[in-house]
Amino acid sequence: MNTLDNPEEEDQKAAEVQVSQSDTMAASSAAMDGVAAAALRSVLQRVHQAAERSGRGSNRIRVVAVSKTKPVSVIRQVYDAGHRYFGENYVQELIDKAPQLPEDIEWHFIGNLQSNKVKPLLAGVPNLAMVESVDDQKIANHLDRAVASLGRKPLKVLVQVNTSGEESKFGVEPSGCVELAKHVSMGCPSLEFCGLMTIGMLDYSSTPENFKTLSNCRSEVCKALGMPEEQCELSMGMSNDFEQAIECGSTNVRIGSTIFGAREYSKKK
């Protein structure tokens, strides 16, 4: 009998095709997730080697896996590989993802933060561990008030410094980092000043100079605050320059595409 004459057989074949396509998609997703977990292991090994070259233990360096535009399923695979530090650049994306993932993740917000997004971010992400991108007193004050109003424990923050002088980048000028650090440390009781952050230039031959500038800023800030330098974090280094950053003293590196692959901006909400 021609299968076209048998609707039940056609339905069964269509269902089999649908199941097969679903299995293929699941396998593809699993393969993609496995790649991310393997990439994480490779990054951690490179961090360990860079730390050894700089005379430090790799346990002194935090790797923040930046999952911008990536689905929760891939983040979960990296989590299942044992990682707990993740970062996002966009408030809404972090608010959407955080509730779908385990509560013991320590989220870092590393993008430019607008005043009107402060309270939604803090309310929507109870396990937000750190905001790395405080670049003026206004945003520090908004964070301080929001943390207090929500009854949260003091929020860890880094002061973002524009070490490259590029207009396209956010951050306080190096000459203003001491004043801003003082404001956060002494004027914002609901914030915990933890250190400094910068984004190096895309021309990586210039990046070490950016890193050196941030290190100099740390010396000035610590002197002004009476703070031991080893207690003041340096968040610098991303996928293309994190090994250089570690060798220059970074304690916190933000790795996105090297772990998760190229970003998928069309999927960003």
Rank of each mutant, 00 (worst) to 15 (best):
130 M>H: 07
175 S>T: 14
136 D>N: 14
161 V>T: 08
137 Q>A: 15
169 K>F: 05
153 K>C: 05
176 G>A: 13
139 I>C: 06
132 E>L: 05
159 V>I: 10
154 P>F: 14
165 G>V: 00
164 S>I: 02
124 G>H: 05
175 S>V: 12
174 P>L: 11
164 S>N: 04
173 E>I: 09
126 P>E: 03
123 A>N: 01
162 N>H: 07
151 G>L: 03
157 V>A: 07
145 R>P: 04
162 N>W: 09
150 L>H: 04
175 S>I: 06
155 L>K: 10
127 N>A: 03
144 D>C: 14
141 N>Q: 15
123 A>I: 04
139 I>V: 15
159 V>D: 03
142 H>N: 07
171 G>Q: 08
166 E>Y: 05
120 P>S: 09
141 N>D: 14
120 P>E: 01
161 V>N: 06
169 K>M: 07
126 P>F: 00
131 V>L: 02
138 K>M: 05
163 T>Q: 11
143 L>R: 10
156 K>F: 08
155 L>D: 00
136 D>C: 12
139 I>R: 08
119 K>T: 13
122 L>V: 07
166 E>L: 02
139 I>N: 10
160 Q>E: 12
165 G>S: 05
155 L>R: 09
150 L>T: 03
119 K>V: 09
135 D>G: 11
161 V>G: 08
143 L>H: 13
120 P>K: 07
